[in-house]
Amino acid sequence: MVSRHACRFIVLMFLVGLNLRPAMSSVAPLLNRLQENAGLSAPAAGLLTTLPVLFLGLTAPLAPIIGRRLGSERALSSALLLLASGLLIRVLPLPGMLYVGTAMAGSAIGLAGTLLPALVKRELPQNADLLTGLYTMALCMGGALGAGLSVPLMQWLGGWQASLVSWALLALATFIVWVRYAPTPYSSKAIGSPSSLPLVTLLSKPLTWQVMLFMGIQSSMAYIVFGWLPTLLIERGYTEATAGWTMAVSILCQLASALSAPWIARLHHDQRPALLLVLICTAMGLACLLAAPLTWRWPGAVLLGLGQGGSFSLALSLLVLRTANERLAGQLSGLVQGGGYTLAALGPFGVGLMLQAGATTEHIAWLLIGLIGICGIFALFAGRQRQLDDHSGHLQVYHR
């Protein structure tokens, strides 16, 4: 039977996860409007879609340090407040504020997204992989809401600024709820405690790099979709609203695979079959949406959603499955998400440069499918049943 404490933590985890994608997915359906109204070129728009991912990657490694100094619960409160502030600042009618606020929001997402998996490992260690699936489902739902409601909110509220700033209300509400009901701090088990291993020790293990590169490439696919999918669909003849809803349907389909992928992965002795399955779905979805005839739109949206939801859920699950304790999970989470998201930031910016150079959606589709093939190689290594453990005083990799 699930305890009251566990239920409360699960609800809080879901609310926080709901806030960590609208800051990015809400911009994509409005990108053409921003280019027209703000005079953004394709590279400038690419920079706008890249900034949150870049700052997410740069701040993620800082999360264990901040968690140690403030406590994980207070650190997460600060991240939610920073997120709300960034969402408010980015619509101010001052030069550069769109970029400053976007960077602040990305930093907040990096901190919160790194702290939460380690808290899950601490609060409910026996079901950490399954709860990570639920958390990923919250991320996907937030992304779908951001993508699907951006254009309707712009029409209802009278402008793109009001549409974008409305997501700050969700962040503020979650901040209030988190401050009121956050779990009691564990002073003796804080993330990033003094006994934490030097990062160079973690980097000396190939398993760390395998998980990081898998995280980075699959995240790059996700943020390209968040940043550019509606624009690429509009290039193929879709309206703004239809492109936004197509992306929203794709993200909604992520809900099913985000929750089910960790369960499916448990059917085999390791995660490799599940990882390859979701990557194949992602590749087929991109091919249907960006290279196949337009009649393949809905199958493409479904396949892309199932693939991306499952791959991200499994990537986060690897952070807890490949570590033996909450402290190592926090360190690996910061390192993998920091390096992975910094790598992922190249994707949206690269697509902007390709469009500026005259690349077609079909060219972009086949390049992305090639990257997914490379991601599959790292999945074969990262999905093996191995675990980092330091119980002997030295970091070891054990076969499970």
Rank of each mutant, 00 (worst) to 15 (best):
M1A: 14
S3Q: 03
S3F: 01
A6G: 04
A6W: 11
L15A: 15
R21V: 00
S25W: 05
S26A: 15
A28V: 09
N32H: 13
G39V: 00
L40P: 10
P43W: 03
A45I: 00
T50K: 05
L54I: 01
G57I: 01
G57C: 04
P64H: 04
P64M: 11
G67Q: 09
R68V: 00
R74A: 11
A79M: 01
A84T: 05
S85C: 14
S85Q: 07
I89V: 15
R90F: 06
M97F: 10
M97K: 05
V100L: 15
A105N: 10
S107Q: 01
A108L: 04
L111I: 12
L111A: 01
T114L: 09
L116Y: 03
L119K: 05
K121G: 04
N127M: 09
D129G: 06
L130Q: 13
G133W: 04
G133R: 08
G133A: 07
M137L: 15
A144D: 11
G146C: 04
G146P: 08
M154W: 03
M154N: 15
G159N: 12
W160E: 09
Q161E: 15
S163P: 06
W167H: 01
L169G: 11
I176S: 15
Y186I: 09
Y186N: 15
S188P: 04
P194S: 09
L199I: 12
V200Y: 07
T201F: 01
L202N: 12
L203A: 14
K205P: 03
K205C: 12
T208G: 11
Q210L: 05
L213S: 06
L213K: 08
A222I: 07
A222E: 12
I224E: 09
F226M: 13
I234H: 13
E235A: 14
R236S: 02
Y238K: 13
A243M: 05
G244R: 07
A248C: 10
A248K: 08
L252K: 07
Q254Y: 10
W263G: 04
A265F: 01
H269F: 08
P273D: 06
L276C: 11
V278G: 11
V278H: 10
A283N: 07
G285V: 02
L289I: 03
L290C: 00
A292N: 07
A301Y: 06
L304D: 04
G307P: 09
F312T: 12
L314H: 08
L314G: 03
L314A: 03
L316H: 02
S317K: 09
L321F: 02
Q331W: 01
G334Q: 08
L335Q: 12
G339Y: 00
A344Q: 02
G350M: 00
V351R: 02
V351Q: 02
V351P: 01
G358R: 10
E362G: 10
I364P: 00
I369V: 14
I374M: 14
I377G: 12
A379C: 06
L380A: 11
R384S: 13
R384C: 02
Q385L: 10
R386Q: 15
D390H: 14
